[in-house]
Amino acid sequence: MRAEKLSISLTPEAVTLIETYRQAHAMKSRSQVIEHALRRLREEDLEAAYREAAAELDPDWAPTTGDGLAHEAW
């Protein structure tokens, strides 16, 4: 994996949180903790987008997704 080195400034509390999480989850580096956190943020954004899209679905369309079969049939 290609990585780019960054320099960031964090509060001592944030650094402690990262280090505690790293140790508790047997991660090799603080960078892995940050990457994990960023993945979670991306997943949260995607989940929110899917929820929003699902809320916009036409209720008359839903029965056609199962070709007329009840949910229990497939």
Rank of each mutant, 00 (worst) to 15 (best):
A49E: 06
E4L: 15
D45Y: 00
R2L: 15
T16V: 09
L6F: 13
V15Y: 00
E56I: 04
T65R: 08
E35K: 00
H71I: 15
A26Q: 10
I8W: 02
R51N: 08
G66E: 14
Q23G: 14
L46Y: 09
R2D: 15
A3Y: 07
R40L: 15
A62C: 08
W74T: 15
D58P: 03
R22P: 01
K28E: 07
L6V: 14
E56Q: 11
R39N: 02
E52V: 06
A3P: 07
K5V: 08
S31Q: 00
R40F: 14
W61C: 09
E13L: 02
H36P: 03
A70R: 08
I18C: 02
A49R: 11
D60Y: 03
T64V: 10
P63D: 04
L57M: 09
R51M: 12
I8S: 02
H71M: 14
T64F: 07
L46W: 06
D60A: 12
E44M: 10
R30L: 01
L17T: 13
Y50A: 02
L41M: 14
R51V: 07
E4S: 08
K5N: 04
M27V: 01
R2W: 11
Y50F: 03
E56K: 15
E44G: 14
G68H: 04
T11P: 09
T64N: 13
Q32D: 06
A49N: 03
K5F: 07
E47Y: 13
Q23V: 09
P63R: 01
E52W: 14
R39W: 01
D67T: 06
R30N: 12
A55W: 07
S9A: 05
A54F: 05
A54V: 02
